[in-house]
C-alpha cells in the first residue's frame, strides 16, 4: 500500500517525534509513504478567521499537487487540523460549483487546479481499515502487557464529519491499543476539547480543559493521542494543570507506543523529543516499569483484577 504523505508544519517542528515515529511504524507495517512534493501549510484553524478563500485554497493547493503528480494516491495526514482542512475541501468546495470555481481561480495564480479526485485519509483510518489491528498484532515483538493507555482523539478527526469513528463516543484507537498488548483506560474525555490555540491567547480558558482531562487520566500509565496540538497542550502545561486539579501523566503519540511494541528503539520512537517527559518518566517507560510498579499497598507486581479494584476503591 502506498500513500501521498502530508506531514504538515507541526510534524516538521514541535512534533518531530510524531513524524519520525509515523514513518518508522508505517515502514514496519509495510506501508510506503511518499511526501507530497513542495507541500505547504494547510492554514490550520488560523485561516478561517482571516480569509474564507485562503481557508479553502491553502489545503486545496496540496490536494492539487497530489492529484497532478501522485497518480490519484490517497493522501495520508497524521495531524488532526491538516486532516480536517484537507477533507473540508472535498466536502465543501468540490460540492459547491461557485466556491469550487473561486478556489480554482486562486490556485490558478500558482498554475494549479483541483478537480476533487483525491481521497483524504487520517492516519488512524488507515491503521484501522487498511492495515487492520490483526496485522499490527502480528508485528508486535515487545508487547505492552500491563500498560494502561488512555486514548485521546481530540476534536477535528471526529467532527464535524463522521468518517471512520463515532464523533460522540470514539473507539477507533482501542483495537490498536489492544493489539499492542496494552489495556484501554476507560474514560469520557477522549473527544473533549483541549482548548487548541486558545492556549496562546486565552490560556486561563484552555487550562481549565487541560486540567479536567488530565484529572480524568487518573489510573492510566500514559495518554495516547494522534494530534500534535493536543499533545503539546496536554503535555507542556502540566505544572500549571496540577495546581488546578490535573495530574502528571506522560502524553505520547499513538505512533510512539506502537513503535515501542514493534521493537523500533529510540531512533524510531524518539521519547527523548517529548517536551516534558522527564528522564525518570522516560526510564520508567523504556524499562517497562508499569509491570512491576509498587502499589500503594506495598505489594510489588500488578495483579490486573485486583489492581483495578484498588483503583476503584481509591475513587470512592
Amino acid at each position: 500500500m502506498k500513500y501521498a504523505y502530508y506531514p504538515g508544519c507541526s510534524l516538521s517542528e514541535s512534533a518531530k517525534e510524531f513524524d519520525v515515529s509515523v514513518r518508522a511504524v508505517m515502514d514496519r507495517l509495510g506501508i510506503e509513504l511518499s511526501d507530497i512534493p513542495d507541500w505547504t501549510c494547510c492554514g490550520a484553524s488560523a485561516a478561517e478567521p482571516v480569509s474564507r478563500l485562503m481557508n479553502y485554497a491553502l489545503p486545496a493547493r496540496n490536494l492539487a499537487v497530489a492529484e497532478k503528480d501522485m497518480g490519484g494516491m490517497d493522501v495520508l495526514a497524521p495531524c488532526s487540523a491538516c486532516y480536517l482542512n484537507l477533507l473540508k475541501v472535498n466536502r465543501e468546495v468540490v460540492a459547491d460549483r461557485h466556491l469550487h470555481g473561486r478556489v480554482n481561480e486562486v490556485l490558478a495564480a500558482s498554475g494549479l487546479t483541483y478537480r476533487g479526485e483525491v481521497r483524504v485519509r487520517h492516519l488512524l483510518d488507515v491503521l484501522l481499515n487498511d492495515v487492520g489491528a490483526a496485522i499490527v498484532a502480528q508485528k508486535v515483538t515487545d508487547g505492552l502487557a500491563g500498560m494502561k493507555l488512555a486514548p485521546y482523539y481530540g476534536c477535528q478527526i471526529l467532527r464535524p464529519y463522521r468518517v471512520f469513528d463515532d464523533p460522540g463516543k470514539p473507539t477507533s484507537m482501542e483495537p490498536i491499543i489492544t493489539a499492542l498488548g496494552a489495556e484501554v483506560h476507560e474514560w469520557d474525555c477522549g473527544n473533549r476539547c483541549c482548548g487548541a490555540s486558545l492556549m496562546v491567547g486565552h490560556r486561563d480558558v484552555a487550562m481549565r480543559s487541560v486540567a479536567a482531562i488530565l484529572a480524568e487520566a487518573e489510573g492510566a500509565d500514559a495518554v495516547v493521542t494522534v494530534c500534535p496540538l493536543c499533545q503539546m497542550n496536554l503535555e507542556a502545561y502540566q505544572a500549571q494543570a496540577v495546581r488546578m486539579g490535573g495530574r502528571r501523566v506522560p502524553v505520547l503519540y499513538l505512533s510512539q507506543v506502537m513503535g515501542m511494541a514493534l521493537g523500533l528503539g529510540e531512533d524510531g520512537v524518539q521519547l527523548g523529543k517529548n517536551l516534558t517527559l522527564t528522564a525518570g518518566g522516560r526510564k520508567r517507560i523504556t524499562t517497562r516499569a508499569w509491570r512491576t510498579e509498587v502499589q500503594p499497598g506495598g505489594e510489588a507486581g500488578r495483579q490486573e483484577g485486583e489492581n483495578n479494584l484498588n483503583k476503584g476503591a481509591s475513587h470512592v
Binding site: K16, R52, R61, R102, V106, A109, N274, L275
Partner: peptide, 30 residues
C-alpha cells in the same frame, strides 16, 4: 523546553514565497 529538545530553529527558506501569488489573488478577489 523546546530549545533544549532542538525544536526551535531559524526559519527554513525551502518554501519561501511559494504562496505569495495565491495570497495576492485571494486578497484581490475578496
Amino acid at each position: 523546553k523546546m530549545l533544549s529538545k532542538g525544536k526551535l530553529h531559524l526559519p527554513s527558506h525551502a518554501q519561501r514565497g511559494r504562496l505569495g501569488p495565491m495570497f495576492a489573488k485571494a486578497r484581490q478577489m475578496e
